[in-house]
Amino acid sequence: MQFKVGDLAEMLEGEVLRTTDNNSVVVKIGGKQHTLQLLKSGTDEFEFLLDNSFHHAKILQVGTAEVKMMIDGQPLVVKKHSKLTEVLEKASAIGGVGGGDRNLTSQIPGRVVNIAAKPGTEVKKGDVIVVLESMKMQVAVKAHKDGNLKEIKVKQGTSVARNDVLAVIE
């Protein structure tokens, strides 16, 4: 299995070779062999030794092809890459944007303080559509692509959560 770690360009290959006696496994990561010894595991949390280094991993979110974690206190996303994911990625690029791409979502929880664009108008990527307020700061939510602003799904005063759909751009 190939893994894409964070923004690193090179993929890392990872596989388990064999288990040894004392609760260790021998793994091959990035072309080299390492000993992986699990010390403690709980719900979504692992403490392990990779060769002679101690590591702590907390799994935050597991998607079909990616794992969001805190590794040694640092947030990191690891994407699993198989032949299947490659095929799917190519297909979506050719077929144009899927339904999910129409939605302009909020990256943060907050309150809508200003609607900065008119539904039915043409917008360009980067245009401010909605302004949210959180922690006494104002954050501008910008259009993620060019297109027609079909609909704004919130109004002034609405409270939004992370990933809520704010507007639809086609």
């Binding site: 923004d7 388990v16 992986l36 991993a57």
Partner: peptide
């Protein structure tokens, strides 16, 4: 951040191997 990710990359992969049950 990129450098730090490089350092943690192998450990991160190991964590995924543990998590996804690849470790029999």
């Amino acid at each position: 951040a990129k450098e730090a990710a490089k350092k943690s990359a192998k450990a991160a992969v190991a964590a995924v191997l543990l998590q996804s049950g690849f470790v029999r």
